[in-house]
């Protein structure tokens, strides 16, 4: 097997809440490979979102080592992490987090604009990806004019359009009904198959856990099970 695209070695994250130290992650060791579709499962407060944030460079580790697609995150400053997220990581959030003043097309184009992709190419790719997630005819609508499922499809399209190495999804189906959730999961699985993009999904939704090929259970800040 190739070198892992994500490497976590003895990752600790300790939050200081007043005088109390909260150990959110307690020595996580984990390797994830290119093209995997992985779920980070666990109860609320288990540390799965914290781990996702560490991998995404949204938060820094207290100790340990995190490497993403060959980049050691601990040696990166704020701008370096921003560049890493821009070039290698796509995010899908529970609350969709689309930019309310932009249309679906513009939301999808947003990252490409940050990357400096020319306008024509942006429009071409955004049409293509919105077609791929099944909402090409809603490209001119703003988020408030879309349903929850449609907004999450736009979010997936936004995460995918710049062809990242990894997509990190945090409870992507939490606000969706089961039918829409299934449809979204099928879409993500298809995209995973087609592009070999690595999907890491933090969830406690059994439907999602069941859907993923590799299931990592996080409990009390540690990897309790990996199968």
């Amino acid at each position: 097997m190739d070198k892992p695209i994500v490497i976590c070695k003895d990752v600790w994250k300790i939050y200081q809440q007043g005088e109390v130290k909260v150990e959110a992650l307690r020595g996580v060791d984990l390797d994830i490979f290119q093209g995997e579709f992985v779920s980070l499962a666990g109860a609320s407060g288990s540390g799965k979102t914290t781990l996702l944030n560490m991998i995404g460079g949204l938060d820094s580790v207290s100790s340990g080592y995190v490497e993403v697609d060959g980049d050691d995150l601990s040696g990166m400053n704020k701008n370096g992490l921003a560049d890493l997220r821009l070039s290698k990581i796509g995010f899908v959030f529970q609350a969709y987090n689309l930019i309310p003043v932009l249309t679906a097309y513009e939301n999808v184009e947003f990252i490409m604009q940050l990357q400096g992709v020319p306008a024509e190419r942006r429009r071409e790719l955004s049409h293509e990806i919105l077609g791929r997630v099944g909402i090409a005819d809603m490209g001119e609508r703003k988020p408030a004019e879309l349903s929850g499922g449609q907004q999450q499809r736009v979010a997936v399209a936004r995460a995918l359009v710049s062809n990242p190495s990894i997509i990190l999804a945090d409870e992507p189906t939490a606000n969706l009904d089961s039918k829409t959730s299934e449809s979204l999961l099928e879409l993500m699985a298809e995209l995973n198959q087609e592009s070999q993009t690595t999907f890491i999904v933090a969830t406690h939704d059994p439907q999602v856990i069941e859907f993923t090929k590799r299931k990592i259970l996080i409990s009390d800040g540690k990897v309790a099970q990996d199968c």
């Binding site: 995404g56 949204l58 704020k78 701008n79 921003a82 560049d83 997220r85 821009l86 070039s87 995010f91 959030f93 987090n97 930019i99 309310p100 947003f110 990252i111 940050l114 990357q115 936004r158």
Partner: peptide
């Protein structure tokens, strides 16, 4: 604030 957090998560730099 949440939106600004999103911008940064998506890779927008502080100066922008």
């Amino acid at each position: 604030m949440r939106e600004f957090g999103l911008f940064q998560a998506l890779g927008m730099k502080t100066r922008w």
